[in-house]
Structures are given as structure tokens and as C-alpha cells.
Design a binder for these strands. Structure first.
Length: 423
DNA sequence: TCTGGGGTCCTAGGACCC
DNA sequence: TCTGGGGTCCTAGGACCC
């Protein structure tokens, strides 16, 4: 007998986080918006009936007003902090655990003598522990494979007045659930593949489980084959106990308005590279190459332009001035003055741990201690006195091209100035 | 007027090399 | 004039996830 996986997933996580600190949001329809205040990225149960996931806000302004839906800008610092607390509670209840995303974790239990009701009691205990200490509701799906645990979790979330728990411990239960589930609800099957699968007559999760291996392998790929096997209760994916090293780190943003002027574009690129430098230093990484891209809006009627360039540093670095120098050089090569841009970004690739030294014998660039000390001092001051207290002049003072975030909740947990006052 | 951001992995085509 | 086969790298794009 193999072990069981519990997939614990926080319900409407961002909305639940906002509710922890603002009781007025409880029981009301609430949505949380993306960075740019552009799209809806989380909805409370009350809001789900009217507002689709991912919809641009301007399309649902009317509905928001009509039903008095509360609107929050996203506050990732707050969500990250609450996530850390959820995970530390889960860890106490698990034999081993993998943090899968900001609001989900897989727990593994190998005790095979437990009955169905033992598993349910364990799940209820975990759920109540998190609700009581943090006020965050969770749903729990249980299965022998990760894919089945995910699917069980989907089901647990659907049961409106149920326990938020679903267990798949027998072939009969698996069959009943898979027959109810559309193939697109399976973890790893997105919109495109669902459409292709349906063209082969595979509409439900059950039909995918039953589909010939040869078809899946030939018309799709090895990933989907693995998913199919996991639906058959054959374990292909295991718990990942350590987080693999990052392969890329990105800073990309849409602007609050369109930019045509290269000077403003330079400000944006320099700002993003400043942020990239901070992220690199935070993760103790250095970069040799980064992708710089600029693009016009995909939704605009005007001609679409999207161009990227790989900027190569002389040596691995996390020094902001060197990043900016290389970035501005790259920007000059891809910028065309006839377009109005709505987004830019930088993506660090070719990363290396900070402590690996491999000097370039002939490059003549050996990073001085003075330079890295300077970066450390800048990071320290910006953490202490707030973002961009110290910054490069090229990043601009006004930044009126930057996107807005108008409904943001305070950083209740991570900033002394914004701590919740109890009177 | 206003359509997110940050990841992973795979594939296909062209350039170039032997 | 005939124009192979296999490898790598680069670039762009597409699929998926949260």
C-alpha cells in the first residue's frame, strides 16, 4: 500500500487574507485585482456568481456597482506573510510536505492502517487549526496520486455547505468522481488541450483515464500520458522535498498609460532593472544574461510590435549600475520611435549563486568590494525608509507612466507604520 | 480610456559547424 | 552540377501552472 497525499488549498486565498484584517468584507461579495488594477484575480464565493475569473475590471464596473461588490487592489506582501503562517501550521501536522504555491501544499501520510473516517478526522483537525489561528478557510483533497488529490480538492471546493473535504481511496469513488469531471478540470489540462482532447471524443476526466496510451502519447506528449496514469491511481509524481534552484527571475509590468518617448521607456527599464538587482541580491544570485522586452498592446487596433533582446553582462553580477548600463544599451537596439508601448520587462536567465567566483581573466572587470558594499547599503536604506528612498536618477522622479494600485490594503503584518491599531 | 505578473517545460525553424 | 546528416545554439512561440 502506498501513502496518501493531502492537497490543502486555501479558499479564495487573496480575498480570505483581506477579510482577516477587514471584517466588513466578511459575507459580502469581494474581488481582488491584479497588480495593475487591470483584472480580477480572486473572488469571494458571493462574487463568483456575477464576475468571471480573470475578467478586465472595466468590463464589470456596472455589475460591481449594482451588487456593491467590494474591490481590493492586491497586496502581495500581506498574502506572502499569511501564506508563510499557513505553511508553518501545516508543517506541524504533516509527516512531509511540499509547498506547491502561495496557497497550496501537499502533505504526505504513510500510515496505511487508517480508515476513511480516520482520514476525514485528520483533515477536519487541520482545517480547524488553520481557521482558528489565522481565520483562513481551506479545502482538502486526498488521493494516492497528486493528480487525484488535486481533483478531489476541486470537488471539495464545489460542495457549498459540505466539509470542504473529499477522499479518493477506492476505485469506485475515483470512477464516480472522474465521470462527473470535465477533462479540463484535470490538473495539467488547459483550455487548448481540452479542446484537442474533445476532438478525439475525450470529454470527461474518466474518458482521459480510459483513453489508449498510444493516442495520448502520439497526439499529445509524455506529460499528458503521466497525467492519465495518475488518474488511474498510478503514482508518477512524487513529493519534492527541496525547492530546485531558480532558472529565471522576472520583473515585468504594464504601464499606467502608453509610452512613446524613449526617455520614459528608459526610466521604466532602469526601474525594473533596479528591482531585478534587489531580487537577485535577496536570493544571493548573480546573472550573466537577461532578456529585455518591450511591446505594444495586443488589444489595441494599432499594429502590434513586440521585440526582445538578450543583454549580456561582462561577468556574473547583481550590481544595479551594470544591469542598467547593459539594459539601456539593449533598449536602444530594439526601440522604434513610431510605436506606443504599454509594457516592458526584464527576465534574468543564466543565473549563478553569488558565492561562486569565476573571474574573467581578460575582461578587466573585477567587481570591487566597494561596489557590492554600496549595493548592500542601498538595499538596507530602502528597506528601512521605504522603497526607492535611494535610487538612480535615470529611473525618474515622477514615474507618471507607472501603473496605479488604488485600493490597496495596508501591510498589517510587515510594516511597523501600518500595523493594525486596536483601540 | 482601462485586458496582471511570475514561473516551468517543450517545440520548431534557421544559422552555423563538422 | 550534384546539395547529406547530425549536432548545437539562438530565437520565437506555445502550452501549462499559480
Amino acid at each position: 500500500m502506498s501513502s496518501f497525499y493531502f492537497l490543502v488549498d486555501c479558499n479564495n486565498f487573496y480575498v480570505s487574507c483581506e477579510r482577516v484584517f477587514n471584517a466588513k468584507l466578511i459575507g459580502k461579495p469581494v474581488v481582488v485585482l491584479s497588480n495593475n488594477d487591470g483584472c480580477v484575480v480572486a473572488r469571494s464565493n458571493e462574487a463568483k456568481q456575477w464576475i468571471p475569473m480573470g475578467v478586465p475590471v472595466y468590463k464589470v464596473r456596472g455589475i460591481i456597482a449594482q451588487h456593491q461588490v467590494k474591490v481590493c487592489s492586491s497586496n502581495y506582501t500581506l498574502y506572502g506573510e499569511l501564506s508563510r503562517r499557513v505553511m508553518s501550521i501545516l508543517k506541524k501536522h504533516a509527516e512531509s510536505m511540499e509547498i506547491y504555491s502561495i496557497d497550496e501544499a501537499f502533505l504526505e501520510y504513510s500510515d496505511t492502517s487508517k480508515t476513511s473516517s480516520d482520514w476525514e478526522n485528520l483533515a477536519i483537525m487541520i482545517r480547524d487549526a488553520i481557521r482558528q489561528s489565522l481565520g483562513i478557510p481551506v479545502s482538502i483533497g486526498v488521493g494516492r496520486t497528486k493528480t487525484l488529490a488535486k481533483l478531489a480538492n476541486n470537488q471539495a471546493k464545489k460542495e457549498k455547505y459540505g466539509s470542504g473535504f473529499c477522499l479518493l481511496d477506492s476505485p469506485e469513488r475515483i470512477e464516480v468522481l472522474l465521470k462527473k469531471m470535465d477533462v479540463q478540470e484535470v490538473w495539467g489540462v488547459g483550455r487548448r488541450w481540452a479542446k484537442n482532447l474533445k476532438a478525439y471524443g475525450i470529454d470527461s476526466a474518466w474518458q482521459l483515464q480510459q483513453a489508449p496510451e498510444k493516442l495520448i502519447r502520439q497526439k499529445f506528449n509524455i506529460f499528458l500520458l503521466r497525467t492519465k496514469l495518475e488518474l488511474q491511481d498510478v503514482r508518477c509524481l512524487h513529493l519534492e522535498h527541496f525547492t530546485p534552484p531558480r532558472k529565471s527571475i522576472a520583473v515585468t509590468r504594464s504601464f499606467g498609460r502608453k509610452i512613446q518617448n524613449i526617455l520614459e521607456l528608459e526610466q521604466a527599464v532602469a526601474s525594473y532593472l533596479t528591482r531585478l538587482g534587489e531580487k537577485l541580491r535577496l536570493h544571493h544570485l548573480k546573472v550573466k544574461k537577461f532578456i529585455l522586452f518591450i511591446q505594444t498592446s495586443r488589444f489595441s487596433k494599432e499594429e502590434y510590435y513586440s521585440k526582445s533582446i538578450i543583454c549580456t553582462l561582462q561577468d556574473y553580477t547583481n550590481n544595479t549600475s551594470q544591469l542598467i548600463l547593459a539594459g539601456l544599451n539593449g533598449l536602444g537596439q530594439i526601440y522604434l520611435s513610431e510605436f506606443s508601448y504599454n509594457k516592458a520587462g526584464v527576465v534574468a536567465i543564466d543565473l549563478r549563486a553569488e558565492d561562486v567566483h569565476q573571474g574573467q581573466l581578460f575582461s578587466g572587470v573585477i567587481e570591487s568590494k566597494a561596489e557590492s558594499d554600496l549595493m548592500m547599503a542601498v538595499d538596507l536604506l530602502n528597506r528601512k525608509y521605504g522603497k526607492s528612498s535611494i535610487h538612480y536618477a535615470i529611473t525618474g522622479l515622477r514615474q507618471d507612466w507607472a501603473a496605479l494600485s488604488t485600493q490597496k490594503s495596508p501591510n498589517y503584518l510587515s510594516s511597523w507604520e501600518e500595523l493594525l491599531a486596536v483601540s
